[in-house]
C-alpha cells in the first residue's frame, strides 16, 4: 500500500512537471511549481520523512512561490518564443537520462533494509540516540548534535544568501533624513 501511494504521487509529480515545462505563461508556471512542491511534500510523508515534508510544504509551496510572484511582478509574466531549436538540449537531456536509467539497474531495489545506505552510519543513529542524547526525534539529534558542524555551515550559507539579496536589492530610502532616494550610491554604479 505504501509503495502504491508513493507511485501514484510520483506519477502526478511527473505529470505536473511535463505541464510546467511546456507552459509559456510564467504565472501559471509558478502556481504549477507550487502544486508540484506540495505533491513532493506528500511523497516525503509517505517516505517516512515528516520533518523534511514540513519544511518542503512551508518552503516550496509557501515562501518560494511568494518570492517567484514578487519577481514576476517586478519583471514580466509572459515568456518569449525561444529563437534556438530545442533539439540539441533535448538530445543532451535524453542522453543523460538514458545513461542514468542504465545505471539504476545496478542500484538496490526500493524499500529494502539491507542496502549499503541503510546498514552503516545512518542505521546506528536510532540505536545510539537514547543513550547519548535521550530525545525521541532522531532527526533533531543528528541535525543539532552529531552533525552540528554541518548545520553550522548550512546556517552560514543562509546568512550569506540573506546578505547577498540585501546587497542586491535594498534601497536605503526608508531611513528618516535620507531624501535623495534615486541618487543612492548603490544605483549609480549599476546604470552607466
Amino acid at each position: 500500500m505504501e509503495a502504491f501511494i508513493n507511485m501514484v504521487l510520483l506519477t502526478m509529480m511527473a505529470a505536473s512537471v511535463v505541464a510546467l515545462v511546456r507552459m509559456r505563461n510564467l504565472f501559471a508556471v509558478v502556481i504549477l511549481f507550487s502544486v508540484y512542491s506540495f505533491l513532493m511534500a506528500s511523497v516525503l510523508v509517505v517516505l517516512d520523512a515528516p520533518d523534511v515534508a514540513m519544511t518542503e510544504a512551508a518552503v516550496g509551496s509557501g515562501v518560494s512561490t511568494v518570492l517567484f510572484l514578487a519577481a514576476l511582478y517586478l519583471t514580466k509574466t509572459e515568456e518569449a518564443q525561444p529563437r534556438h531549436s530545442p533539439l540539441l538540449p533535448m538530445f543532451v537531456a535524453v542522453v543523460v537520462g538514458a545513461a542514468l536509467v542504465y545505471g539504476t539497474y545496478d542500484m538496490p531495489p526500493f524499500g529494502a533494509a539491507d542496502t549499503p545506505v541503510n546498514t552503516h552510519v545512518g542505521a546506528q543513529y536510532p540505536g545510539r540516540t537514547p543513550a547519548e542524547i535521550d530525545i525521541p526525534n532522531v532527526v533533531s539529534a543528528v541535525l543539532a548534535s552529531y552533525r552540528g558542524f554541518d548545520t553550522l555551515g548550512e546556517v552560514l550559507v543562509v546568512f550569506t544568501a540573506a546578505i547577498g539579496v540585501l546587497l542586491l536589492l535594498r534601497r536605503n530610502k526608508r531611513r528618516p533624513g535620507d531624501a535623495s532616494e534615486e541618487a543612492g550610491p548603490d544605483r549609480a554604479g549599476m546604470e552607466d
Binding site: 524499500g111 541503510n118 526525534n137
Partner: peptide, 11 residues
C-alpha cells in the same frame, strides 16, 4: 533509498 518498507519515521 533511506526508506524501508514497513518501517516508521525515525522518531
Amino acid at each position: 533509498p533511506g526508506k524501508i518498507l514497513g518501517g516508521t519515521a525515525p522518531i
